[in-house]
Design a protein around this nucleic acid. Structure first.
Length: 949
RNA sequence: GCGCGGUUAGCUCAGUGGUAGAGCACCACAUUGACACUGUGGGGGUCACAGGUUCAAACCCUGUAUCGCGCACCA
C-alpha cells in the first residue's frame, strides 16, 4: 500500500478493481478448459427492474459460490441475464404512456407500435439492474449475458412449444381460468394468491315452481352472479331437500325475464356441504370453479344444466345480467343485486362473513373465474422430476423445501400458458378454417398418405418445418371440400410469413413469461446446438433462488431439464430466506421500508453490504434487515484494513519463510486457530451455511487475530530482537495472506486491494494469485507435515488459552480495584511452570502493567488481590485505596456460584446410576470439573480471608 | 382443515443429549501508539408452557399456546 489512509474508503477502490477484473476477462468462462466445471445460472431479474435487497442476498450468495469455486481451481461459469417479465413490463409501459396522455388504451397504438414502445423502454431501462449487479461485485460472465427475448432464446421457446404440441401435451380449450380483469389476461393458478376478505354472506330465498309458496333459502357471497345461475344444488343425502331434486326454482334475477326463463332445476350433487349456510347452493358455472365442475358432472350424466356468462372481461356485468345490473362493475352490481332482492322481499338476512378470495398477484385485484379459450400444457417428465428430488439426487437446501416441492408435483394441474398480452413470445400457432382443398397440394397429399389428421412437412425450397394438424377431424378428411379447422405450427419465423400468405392467422396471444424462463439453464447455453458451453457447464452445479418461485420456476426448470436435456438442470438448489424489515414486515414500496441497496453501497461500500447481509442470513430463515448489519460490515472492513495497515507500518519485506525455532507460543496458537478456521469455513461451505462462515471469519479475525495475537505480537515487534521480529512478521504475513483469501468470496473488493497492496501477489504464480486474488488458491488446512515442522501441538493451544484467561482475570482485578485503565500497576506472578521471557513481556503488555514481577515464592499479605489459572497465580498488591467492601461482596457472590456448581457436579457423581451408565470420558470430565471448581473455591476463600486481615 | 417453520439475553440469532453462547444494544473505564468504523471490563437468560423418555433434556417423544409461511378450501 503506497498510500495508507487511516480508514478504509471503499469508494476509492471498488470501481477500480471491477474494471480490472473485466479488463482481465477473469469472469469469462472457458468452455474448453481442462479444469472441472462449476456453473450457476442467475435467476434472471426483470429486465426493467431495479436492484432490491432480495437481489443483493441472492446474488451475493451466488457470487460467493462462484468466487470460492474459482479459488478451488474450478472453471466457473456464472451466467447472467434478464427476463422480459411479460405482465409487469407491459403494465409499466402502458401505464407510463397513459400518464403521459399519449394513449387511453394500448389499442390506440396497435400491437406493433405498442411493442416498439416497449422495446424502446427496455433499451432505456434494461441495463440498470445489470449495472447495479456490477456495483455489488457480481462476477458474472457478461460476455454470455442473455435476455429471454433474444432471437436465439425466442427460437428455443418456439421450438419447445412446437415440440410439446406435437407430443400432444399442448392443447387449446375453452376452460374456466383465472381471469385478471385489470391486466385482461388469463393467469396460471400460481399467479393467484388467496387473500382474506371481509364481506357479507347473503341469505335469499327462491320459490319452488312446482310447489308455490315453498321456498328454499340460499346463502351466497356473490348475489351479483344470480343471473348466471343455472341450477340450485343440494346434497342428495340431505333429508331436508332430497325430495326436491328434479323440481325447479324461480331465479329472481334478471327480473324482467319471462317466467319459463327463470326456471332453473334443483339438482343433487354430493359435493354440497350440509353444514354450510342452508345446505343449498346456487350454481353459477360460468363464474365459479366449483360450480363449473358441477356443470361438467351434469353434462357427463347427460342432464346438462346451462351455462350463462354474466360478467365480461373487464369485470363488468353484461347484457345477460339483466337491465338492473348491465354495465355495472361486479362490486357495484353486488350492492344493486342485494337491494333488488330486498325489494322483492327475498333477502332474509345479511351477515358479516370472512372468506378467502383469489387475487391477481401482479395487479392486486380479485380474479374472476371465467370461461375462456386458452392454451394448456400437460407437464412433461413430471414423474422423473418428482423422483429426482424425493430420492435426494438433487438436493434442496434447506431440505424441507423438498417436501413442498413433492406435494406440488403430486397434484399437478395443466398449466395455462397463454396470456392475452402483447409483450412476450407470441404463440407459434397459425390457424385457418377452410375447405380441405385450400391446403397446399403437397400437404393434402402427405396427409392422405399417412391417413392421419396431422403431418409434418418441409416447406418447398426451404428447410422450414411445418406441422399441420386438422383439429376438427380425427382422421384425414375424405372429401376435398370438407370444412376443416387447421392449426399449423412452425419453429422458425420465416415459416410464419408463408402461412400468412396461405391465409392462416397467427394466434394473437403470447406465452406466460415462465414458459420461457423454465428453459433458462440450457437455452442460455446454446441449446439445441450441443455447444461447448452446454457440454461443459450443463447440468449446472448450484441454483440460488427464493422459495417463493419454487413452483413458478424451479419445478418447471427441472421438468424442462429432463424433457430436453434428459438430465437434471442443477445438482443443488439453495433457497434463500425472504428479506424483511426489522419489524418482520415484508419489504414493499408502499411501506417505504425497502432501502435502496445502491444507497447502502454508497454509504458503506459493497463489501460491507455483502458482509452485513450474509451475516444476518442464516440458512432457511427469513432475514430481518437492519442498516446496522451493513454498518457492522463496514466496521469489519475497516478492521481488516487497519490490521493490514499495522503490518505495513512495521516495515520489512514480505518473507515467506518462518523459522520454527523462533516461534513463540502465540505464533503457534494463531497458526492453529487459522487451521481451525479453515476447517470451519470448509464445512460451512459444504453445508451452504454462509452466516456461519461469516461468523467464523469474524471471530477468527477480530477476536483471535486482532484482539489477542496482534496485541501479543507487539511484545516482540516493539522489542529489539531483529530475528524474532522478522519471524513474527513472517507469521503475520502468513496469516494475513490466508485470511485475505478466505475473505475474498465475501469481500471481493477490499481483499483484492489489500492482496496487491500488501504484496502477497508478488510471489504467486501468475494464474494462481499473481495477477488477482480471484485465482489464488483457497487455503488448505495445515497438514501434518506442516504441524510437525513447526511443532504445533494441542499443548500450545491450551497454554495460550489458559494464558489468555489469566490475562482476562488480571484485567478484571484491576477493574475490581477501581484502577483506571491507564494507570500502570505492578503485578506479581507466582508461576507454576517455566515461563519464557517473551511470555512475561506479553503478560506485561496485555495487562498494561508497569511491571510483572516473577516470584515463585510470593506469599500474599493483606490488601492483595489475586487470581489463579493453570499458569499460576497473579497478585495485584494495592497500597491502600481498595474498596474492601465491594471486593468482599464480589468474592462472596463468586463463591456462591462456585459452591453451587460444586454441589451440582457432586450430586451427579454421587448418583450411582450416573457413575455406572455414563461413558468413561464424560465421567472423567465431571471429575475433572469437580477438581477445578474445588480449586477455585479454595482460592476464592483464601482471597476472601486475605481481605479480612 | 392439512403441512412446514419459529418461540433461547433488551434486539437479531447460534447451539441434535453431558458446565447456556455470539453479535448488536446497555453500563463503566480508557484519547498522540493499526483501528473511536477502537480497546478493556461488566451486568443481563425458569431456553414459550405442561407432561414423558433418560443417570442426564434448550436438544428426543406427546400435547398445549403463540407467531409466521405454504397448500387446499364451504357457496
Amino acid at each position: 500500500m503506497s498510500e495508507i489512509s487511516k480508514a478504509y474508503e471503499p469508494q476509492a477502490v471498488e470501481d477500480k478493481w471491477y474494471q480490472f477484473w473485466l479488463a482481465g476477462k477473469f469472469f469469462v468462462a472457458d468452455a474448453k478448459s481442462p479444469k472441472p466445471a462449476y456453473s450457476i445460472v442467475i435467476p434472471p431479474p426483470n429486465v426493467t427492474g431495479v436492484l432490491t435487497l432480495g437481489h443483493v442476498l441472492n446474488n451475493t450468495i451466488q457470487d460467493i459460490l462462484a468466487r470460492k469455486a474459482r479459488m478451488d481451481g474450478k472453471e466457473v461459469l456464472w451466467l447472467p441475464g434478464t427476463d422480459h417479465a411479460g405482465i409487469a413490463t407491459q403494465t409499466v409501459v402502458e401505464r407510463t404512456l397513459k400518464k403521459a396522455g399519449e394513449i387511453k388504451h394500448r389499442d390506440d397504438l396497435g400491437r406493433e407500435k405498442f411493442l416498439e414502445r416497449v422495446w424502446e423502454w427496455k433499451e432505456k431501462h434494461g441495463g440498470i439492474i445489470i449495472q447495479q449487479l456490477k456495483k455489488l461485485g457480481a462476477s458474472c460472465d457478461w460476455t454470455r449475458e442473455r435476455f429471454t427475448m433474444d432471437p436465439e432464446y425466442s427460437r428455443c421457446v418456439q421450438r419447445v412449444f412446437v415440440d410439446l404440441y406435437k407430443k400432444g401435451l399442448i392443447y387449446r380449450g375453452k376452460r374456466m381460468v383465472n381471469w385478471c380483469p385489470a391486466s385482461l389476461t388469463a393467469l396460471s393458478d400460481e399467479e393467484v394468491v388467496m387473500k382474506e376478505q371481509r364481506g357479507s354472506l347473503y341469505y335469499f330465498k327462491v320459490e319452488v315452481a312446482e310447489a308455490p309458496g315453498t321456498f328454499l333459502t340460499i346463502a351466497t357471497t356473490r348475489p351479483e352472479t344470480i343471473p348466471g345461475d343455472t341450477a340450485v344444488a343440494v346434497n342428495p343425502k340431505d333429508p331436508r331437500y332430497a325430495h326436491l331434486i328434479g323440481k325447479h326454482v324461480l331465479r329472481p334475477l334478471p327480473v324482467e325475464l319471462p317466467h319459463e326463463q327463470k326456471l332453473i332445476p334443483i339438482i343433487g350433487d354430493e359435493h354440497v356441504d350440509f353444514e354450510f349456510g342452508t345446505g343449498v347452493l346456487k350454481v353459477t358455472p360460468a363464474h365459479d370453479k366449483a360450480d363449473y365442475d358441477i356443470f361438467i358432472r351434469t353434462a357427463v350424466n347427460g342432464a346438462a344444466i346451462g351455462l350463462i356468462e354474466v360478467i365480461n372481461a373487464h369485470g363488468k356485468m353484461n347484457e345477460f345480467a339483466g337491465a338492473d345490473l348491465r354495465g355495472l362493475d361486479r362490486f357495484e352490481a353486488r350492492k344493486i343485486a342485494t337491494e333488488k332482492l330486498k325489494e322483492f322481499g327475498l333477502l332474509e338476512k345479511e351477515e358479516p362473513y370472512t372468506n378467502n378470495v383469489g387475487y391477481s398477484e401482479r395487479a392486486d385485484v380479485p380474479i374472476e373465474p371465467r370461461m375462456s379459450l386458452q392454451w394448456f400444457l400437460k407437464y412433461p417428465s413430471a414423474e422423473k422430476s418428482r423422483a429426482v428430488v424425493a430420492k435426494g439426487e438433487m438436493k434442496f437446501h434447506p431440505e424441507r423445501w423438498a417436501k413442498v416441492y413433492d406435494h406440488w408435483m403430486g397434484g399437478l394441474q395443466d398449466w395455462c400458458v397463454s396470456r392475452q398480452l402483447w409483450w412476450g413470445h407470441r404463440i407459434p400457432v397459425w390457424s385457418m378454417k377452410a375447405k380441405f382443398s385450400a391446403l397446399p397440394d403437397y400437404v393434402v397429399q402427405a396427409l392422405r398418405e399417412t391417413g392421419n389428421s396431422y403431418v409434418s412437412t418441409t416447406l418447398p425450397n426451404s428447410s422450414v418445418q411445418v406441422f399441420w394438424n386438422i383439429v376438427s377431424h380425427h382422421k384425414v378428411p375424405s372429401l376435398d371440400d370438407e370444412e376443416i379447422e387447421v392449426q399449423a405450427l412452425t419453429e422458425l419465423a420465416d415459416g410464419g410469413s408463408y402461412l400468412d400468405s396461405l391465409g392462416f392467422t397467427q394466434d394473437p396471444d403470447v406465452l406466460d413469461t415462465w414458459f420461457s424462463s423454465w428453459l433458462w439453464p440450457f437455452a442460455t447455453m446454446g441449446w439445441p446446438e450441443q455447444t461447448d458451453t452446454l457440454k461443459k457447464f450443463y447440468p449446472t452445479t448450484d441454483l440460488v433462488t427464493g422459495p417463493d418461485i419454487i413452483f413458478f420456476w424451479v419445478a418447471r426448470m427441472i421438468m424442462a431439464g429432463y424433457e430436453y436435456m434428459d438430465e437434471l438442470p442443477f445438482q443443488n438448489v439453495y433457497f434463500t430466506g425472504i428479506i424483511r424489515d426489522k419489524q418482520g414486515r415484508k419489504m414493499s414500496k408502499s411501506l417505504g421500508n425497502s432501502p435502496d441497496p445502491l444507497d447502502l453501497i454508497a454509504k458503506f461500500g459493497a463489501d460491507a453490504l455483502r458482509f452485513g447481509v450474509m451475516r444476518a442470513a442464516p440458512l432457511g430463515q427469513d432475514i430481518l434487515f437492519d442498516e446496522q448489519n451493513v454498518e457492522l460490515g463496514r466496521n469489519f472492513c475497516n478492521k481488516l484494513w487497519n490490521a493490514c495497515r499495522f503490518r505495513q507500518m512495521q516495515g520489512g519485506e514480505v518473507q515467506g519463510e518462518i523459522d520454527p525455532k523462533l516461534l513463540t507460543s502465540d505464533d503457534k496458537w494463531i497458526l492453529l486457530k487459522l487451521d481451525a478456521a479453515i476447517h470451519e469455513m470448509n464445512s460451512a461451505f459444504a453445508d451452504y451455511k454462509f452466516s456461519d462462515a461469516t461468523a467464523t471469519l469474524y471471530r477468527f479475525f477480530w477476536s483471535e487475530y486482532c484482539d489477542w495475537y496482534v496485541e501479543a505480537s507487539k511484545a516482540v515487534l516493539q522489542g529489539s530482537d531483529g530475528a524474532r521480529k522478522a519471524n513474527t512478521l513472517a507469521v503475520i504475513d502468513f496469516i494475513l495472506s490466508h485470511t485475505l483469501r478466505m475473505f475474498h468470496p465475501f469481500l471481493p473488493f477490499i481483499t483484492e486491494e489489500l492482496w496487491h497492496g500488501m504484496g502477497y501477489s508478488v510471489d504467486m504464480p501468475e494464474n494462481q494469485g499473481g495477477k488477482t486474488i480471484m485465482f489464488a488458491p483457497w487455503p488448505l488446512p495445515l497438514d501434518d507435515d506442516f504441524k510437525s515442522h513447526y511443532d504445533l501441538t494441542e499443548r500450545d493451544e491450551k497454554f495460550i488459552e489458559s494464558r489468555n484467561e489469566f490475562i482476562a482475570q488480571g484485567r478484571n482485578l484491576r477493574r475490581n480495584a477501581n484502577l483506571p485503565a491507564n494507570k500502570k500497576v505492578k503485578f506479581i506472578f507466582k508461576s507454576v511452570g517455566k515461563t519464557s521471557a517473551t511470555d512475561i513481556e506479553v503478560l506485561k503488555l496485555l495487562l498494561n502493567a508497569e511491571n510483572v514481577e516473577v516470584n515463585p515464592n510470593f506469599q500474599p499479605s493483606k490488601n492483595v488481590l489475586a487470581v489463579r489459572a493453570d499458569l499460576g497465580e497473579l497478585f495485584l498488591p494495592l497500597e491502600g485505596l481498595i474498596d474492601v467492601a465491594a471486593e468482599k461482596t464480589r468474592l462472596t457472590k463468586e463463591l456462591e456460584k462456585i459452591e453451587s456448581e460444586i454441589s451440582k457436579v457432586e450430586q451427579k457423581l454421587n448418583n450411582h446410576a450416573f457413575t455406572q451408565k455414563v461413558p468413561a470420558t464424560v465421567l472423567e470430565e465431571h471429575k475433572q470439573r469437580l477438581v477445578e471448581w474445588q480449586n477455585k473455591s479454595s482460592h476464592a476463600k483464601a482471597a476472601l480471608a486475605a481481605l479480612q486481615n
